[in-house]
């Protein structure tokens, strides 16, 4: 059996759904961050897969490199924010952080 575009899209759709599931249900900010990374990697897989099966391949690969760098920067900022939150609230569960009124 040869691997076609559909197989890649299926994998990236599963990754995207898992990431979204983690963001919506988890109660720990770090796990939510992992869900975000899953979505970004699903997008990366899409970029590479579509580039492999199209006639202008190189732009998709460039996109992946850019996204990897951005994801790293985002993680760094996120962890700094989480440390600050833990110092102030003693927890990184987003549901417990509600001093601002609804």
């Amino acid at each position: 059996m040869s691997i076609t575009l559909t197989h890649f899209i299926a994998v990236s759709a599963v990754l995207f759904s898992l990431g979204l599931f983690a963001i919506l249900t988890r109660r720990n900010s770090v796990t939510i961050l992992m869900g975000l990374e899953l979505i970004l990697n699903a997008a990366n897989l899409n970029f590479v897969a579509f580039a492999r099966f199209s006639d202008t391949p190189f732009r998709g690969d460039v996109a992946v490199l850019i996204v990897i760098v951005i994801a790293a920067a985002e993680t760094a900022v996120a962890l700094a924010i989480f440390i600050n939150i833990f110092r102030n609230f003693g927890s990184i569960d987003p549901n417990e952080i509600k001093t601002l009124k609804e």
């Binding site: 997008a43 985002e74 996120a78 924010i81 939150i85 609230f89 952080i97 509600k98």
Partner: peptide
């Protein structure tokens, strides 16, 4: 700090999507 974590969680999810 609550503002920053809320902004991050909503914002990063939206931009990832």
């Amino acid at each position: 700090s609550e503002a920053s974590i809320k902004y991050f969680l909503y914002g990063a999810s939206a931009s990832a999507v």
